[in-house]
Computed example of a mutant assay.
Amino acid sequence: MFKGLGGLGDMAGMMKKAQEMQTRMAEKQEQLGTITVQGESGAGLVKATATAKGELTALYIDPTIFQPDEKEMVEDLILAAIKDAQSKASQRAQSEMQQMAEEMGLPAGMKLPF
Protein backbone atom coordinates (compact mmCIF):
# COMPACT_ATOMS: atom_id res chain seq x y z
CA MET A 1 0.00 0.00 0.00
CA PHE A 2 2.78 2.42 0.92
CA LYS A 3 5.42 0.95 -1.39
CA GLY A 4 7.61 3.57 -2.94
CA LEU A 5 6.94 6.08 -0.19
CA GLY A 6 10.06 5.14 1.75
CA GLY A 7 9.71 5.75 5.48
CA LEU A 8 6.16 7.10 5.22
CA GLY A 9 4.71 3.58 5.36
CA ASP A 10 6.55 2.98 8.61
CA MET A 11 5.33 6.34 9.91
CA ALA A 12 1.71 5.41 9.17
CA GLY A 13 2.19 2.14 11.05
CA MET A 14 3.75 3.95 13.98
CA MET A 15 0.87 6.45 14.08
CA LYS A 16 -1.64 3.61 14.09
CA LYS A 17 0.23 1.91 16.96
CA ALA A 18 0.36 5.21 18.87
CA GLN A 19 -3.41 5.64 18.50
CA GLU A 20 -3.96 2.06 19.63
CA MET A 21 -1.73 2.64 22.64
CA GLN A 22 -3.57 5.84 23.53
CA THR A 23 -6.91 4.02 23.39
CA ARG A 24 -5.62 1.15 25.54
CA MET A 25 -4.13 3.61 28.04
CA ALA A 26 -7.50 5.34 28.42
CA GLU A 27 -9.21 1.98 28.90
CA LYS A 28 -6.62 0.92 31.49
CA GLN A 29 -6.97 4.21 33.39
CA GLU A 30 -10.73 3.64 33.55
CA GLN A 31 -10.17 0.05 34.71
CA LEU A 32 -7.83 1.24 37.49
CA GLY A 33 -10.80 3.10 38.95
CA THR A 34 -12.64 -0.18 39.43
CA ILE A 35 -9.79 -2.26 40.92
CA THR A 36 -9.68 -2.07 44.71
CA VAL A 37 -6.94 -2.80 47.21
CA GLN A 38 -7.07 -2.88 51.00
CA GLY A 39 -4.47 -1.58 53.38
CA GLU A 40 -4.50 -2.26 57.09
CA SER A 41 -2.77 -1.51 60.34
CA GLY A 42 -2.92 -2.66 63.93
CA ALA A 43 -3.34 -6.31 62.88
CA GLY A 44 -6.54 -5.46 61.02
CA LEU A 45 -8.03 -3.08 63.59
CA VAL A 46 -8.05 -0.35 60.93
CA LYS A 47 -8.60 -1.09 57.24
CA ALA A 48 -8.62 1.34 54.33
CA THR A 49 -9.92 0.46 50.88
CA ALA A 50 -8.78 2.40 47.81
CA THR A 51 -9.00 2.13 44.05
CA ALA A 52 -5.84 1.36 42.10
CA LYS A 53 -5.86 5.07 41.25
CA GLY A 54 -5.30 5.76 44.96
CA GLU A 55 -8.78 7.13 45.72
CA LEU A 56 -9.88 6.18 49.24
CA THR A 57 -13.30 4.51 49.07
CA ALA A 58 -13.85 2.98 52.51
CA LEU A 59 -12.47 3.03 56.01
CA TYR A 60 -13.16 0.42 58.71
CA ILE A 61 -12.25 1.02 62.35
CA ASP A 62 -12.76 -1.71 64.91
CA PRO A 63 -14.82 -0.14 67.74
CA THR A 64 -12.62 -1.70 70.42
CA ILE A 65 -9.87 0.85 69.75
CA PHE A 66 -11.98 3.87 70.73
CA GLN A 67 -10.61 4.82 74.11
CA PRO A 68 -10.19 8.53 74.82
CA ASP A 69 -6.69 8.14 76.26
CA GLU A 70 -5.50 6.39 73.07
CA LYS A 71 -6.60 9.04 70.56
CA GLU A 72 -3.13 9.50 69.07
CA MET A 73 -2.68 5.76 68.61
CA VAL A 74 -5.99 5.55 66.75
CA GLU A 75 -4.99 8.48 64.51
CA ASP A 76 -1.65 6.77 63.78
CA LEU A 77 -3.40 3.50 62.92
CA ILE A 78 -5.80 5.28 60.58
CA LEU A 79 -2.98 7.10 58.84
CA ALA A 80 -0.94 3.88 58.54
CA ALA A 81 -3.86 1.99 57.00
CA ILE A 82 -4.47 4.77 54.46
CA LYS A 83 -0.78 4.90 53.53
CA ASP A 84 -0.72 1.11 53.17
CA ALA A 85 -3.77 1.21 50.86
CA GLN A 86 -2.23 4.00 48.77
CA SER A 87 1.05 2.11 48.48
CA LYS A 88 -0.75 -1.04 47.37
CA ALA A 89 -2.82 1.02 44.90
CA SER A 90 0.34 2.45 43.39
CA GLN A 91 1.94 -0.99 43.10
CA ARG A 92 -1.20 -2.43 41.50
CA ALA A 93 -1.44 0.44 39.01
CA GLN A 94 2.21 -0.03 38.06
CA SER A 95 1.67 -3.78 37.66
CA GLU A 96 -1.38 -3.23 35.43
CA MET A 97 0.50 -0.73 33.24
CA GLN A 98 3.49 -3.06 32.93
CA GLN A 99 1.20 -5.89 31.89
CA MET A 100 -0.34 -3.67 29.22
CA ALA A 101 3.12 -2.63 27.96
CA GLU A 102 4.15 -6.28 27.67
CA GLU A 103 0.96 -7.13 25.79
CA MET A 104 1.74 -4.35 23.33
CA GLY A 105 5.28 -5.61 22.82
CA LEU A 106 6.99 -2.65 24.45
CA PRO A 107 10.44 -3.14 25.99
CA ALA A 108 10.57 -4.55 29.53
CA GLY A 109 10.88 -1.86 32.17
CA MET A 110 9.26 0.84 30.04
CA LYS A 111 7.27 3.14 32.30
CA LEU A 112 3.68 3.97 31.37
CA PRO A 113 2.27 6.52 31.01
CA PHE A 114 5.29 8.08 29.36
Results as ranks from 00 to 15, higher is better:
1 M>K: 10
3 K>N: 15
5 L>P: 06
6 G>P: 03
6 G>V: 06
6 G>Y: 01
7 G>T: 15
8 L>P: 04
9 G>C: 06
9 G>R: 02
9 G>Y: 04
10 D>W: 14
10 D>E: 15
10 D>F: 13
11 M>Y: 10
11 M>P: 01
13 G>A: 14
13 G>C: 12
15 M>D: 03
15 M>F: 12
16 K>F: 08
16 K>E: 13
16 K>C: 04
17 K>L: 11
17 K>H: 07
18 A>I: 04
19 Q>K: 14
19 Q>E: 15
20 E>F: 01
21 M>R: 05
22 Q>Y: 05
22 Q>K: 14
22 Q>F: 03
23 T>G: 15
23 T>D: 15
23 T>R: 15
24 R>D: 10
24 R>M: 12
24 R>A: 13
24 R>H: 05
25 M>R: 08
28 K>M: 12
28 K>R: 11
28 K>F: 01
29 Q>C: 09
31 Q>S: 07
33 G>S: 01
33 G>W: 02
33 G>N: 02
36 T>V: 07
37 V>I: 02
37 V>T: 03
37 V>L: 04
37 V>S: 04
38 Q>W: 09
38 Q>Y: 09
39 G>P: 04
39 G>L: 06
39 G>S: 02
40 E>H: 10
40 E>R: 11
42 G>P: 04
43 A>V: 01
43 A>N: 05
43 A>L: 03
45 L>Y: 00
45 L>I: 00
46 V>I: 01
46 V>F: 00
47 K>I: 12
47 K>E: 09
47 K>T: 12
47 K>H: 06
48 A>L: 09
48 A>P: 02
50 A>Y: 10
50 A>I: 10
50 A>D: 09
50 A>F: 08
51 T>D: 01
52 A>F: 11
52 A>L: 09
52 A>C: 09
53 K>W: 05
54 G>F: 03
54 G>Y: 03
55 E>G: 03
56 L>S: 03
57 T>L: 08
58 A>N: 12
59 L>K: 06
59 L>M: 10
59 L>T: 04
60 Y>E: 13
63 P>E: 09
63 P>K: 11
64 T>A: 13
64 T>H: 08
64 T>M: 04
65 I>P: 06
66 F>Y: 12
66 F>H: 05
67 Q>M: 12
67 Q>A: 14
70 E>R: 14
71 K>D: 09
72 E>R: 07
72 E>Q: 05
73 M>N: 05
75 E>V: 14
76 D>I: 04
76 D>N: 08
78 I>R: 12
80 A>Y: 00
81 A>S: 07
81 A>H: 00
83 K>P: 04
84 D>W: 00
84 D>V: 01
85 A>M: 01
85 A>P: 00
87 S>G: 15
87 S>R: 15
87 S>V: 14
88 K>S: 03
89 A>T: 10
89 A>Y: 02
90 S>I: 08
92 R>S: 13
93 A>Y: 10
93 A>V: 11
94 Q>P: 02
95 S>F: 14
95 S>P: 10
97 M>A: 13
97 M>L: 15
99 Q>V: 13
100 M>A: 02
101 A>L: 11
102 E>R: 14
103 E>K: 11
103 E>H: 05
105 G>D: 11
105 G>I: 05
106 L>T: 00
106 L>W: 00
107 P>V: 02
107 P>N: 01
108 A>Q: 13
109 G>C: 06
109 G>Y: 09
111 K>I: 12
113 P>Y: 01
113 P>S: 01
113 P>L: 00
114 F>E: 13
114 F>S: 15
